[in-house]
Design a protein around this nucleic acid. Structure first.
Lengths: 153, 153
DNA sequence: TTCGTCTTCGCAAGGACATTCCGCAGGTTC
DNA sequence: GAACCTGCGGAATGTCCTTGCGAAGACGAA
């Protein structure tokens, strides 16, 4: 895998903000001919530098108005305990993000819900059912300030 | 804005996972002619249901190997205090997510860094420089379990 | 029922686009 | 200098996107 040069970065930066523009326009923006641009993009996709393209859906339109940050503690840190918890948490479609953490809590989750009633259902049917959990702490987001898909290059 | 029917949801679901396929293939997958599909997609984009398309860049390739969750408390909850903090935090390119929260802390941030040294720089140059902050608590992610762009439909 | 309207479909056409091949230029190695 | 490698632009061809148009179904009012 060769190093990324300035044009590669320009391609990535452009597609990061506007992932569905045509190859012709992409080429124009980064100052390359369409053929050269197509070749470089092909390489970036094949070697995994660009790992995919995703439509961003409006949470408002989908009526997911509520974002909840959930801190979770488990009963132990044994490998089997962690694996079982992680296998279970992956099945919940409302969990957008889950990290194993250092510090006070074992896991931190970002959960999307339509409203309080919906979150009550998620909490009851999914979160409370996760194995080895000894403590769940839900914090509700009052307002979204930033939500970027990637680091600004 | 009319309600979303099953075909609209199929379009959204498809583009959520594969945001750069051609309109012809999209039409094929959702069982519509290309023209009808193009028209529906146009509506979904114009009314904001689909708010954008983003290339997902490999954090590995970009060498962002470290994810940090930062809890922040401010010196007060006055509107002016919050506004000044939010204006400042938006400028830091490493902050991927920022929410105003209920509960113990005022804000929660998700910060991407290349390594510990890089995070030390971000903490020193950006986070510590944010106005009205009285407490910063950084928790490091040990492992990523889930990172979805949207709720599974 | 019957008519008018509204919506959304499929089809067709022409203009734009993606991809591949080819030749060229610049740099490197022997 | 010659052989080689890399990455570019231009041209060709097959595909795709878009727009206009007519038809079919849903729905409400007369």
């Amino acid at each position: 895998m060769s190093a990324l040069d300035a044009i590669d970065l320009a391609i990535m930066r452009t597609l990061q903000d506007n992932g569905r523009i045509s190859n012709a326009e992409l080429a124009d923006r980064v100052g390359l001919s369409p053929s050269a641009c197509s070749r470089r993009l092909d390489i970036l996709e094949k070697n995994g530098t660009i790992s995919g393209y995703h439509a961003r859906l409006s949470n408002k339109a989908l009526e997911y108005k509520m974002m909840v940050i959930v801190h979770i503690s488990l009963s132990g840190q044994f490998a089997k305990t962690l694996t079982e918890f992680e296998t279970a948490v992956k099945l919940c479609p409302n969990v957008l993000v889950c990290y194993l953490m250092s510090g006070e809590y074992d896991y931190i989750l970002r959960v999307a819900a339509k409203d309080l009633e919906d979150y009550e259902r998620i909490h009851r049917d999914w979160l409370s059912a996760l194995p080895h959990v000894v403590k769940i702490n839900s914090s509700f987001a009052l307002r979204e300030i930033i939500d970027r898909p990637n680091v600004g290059l």
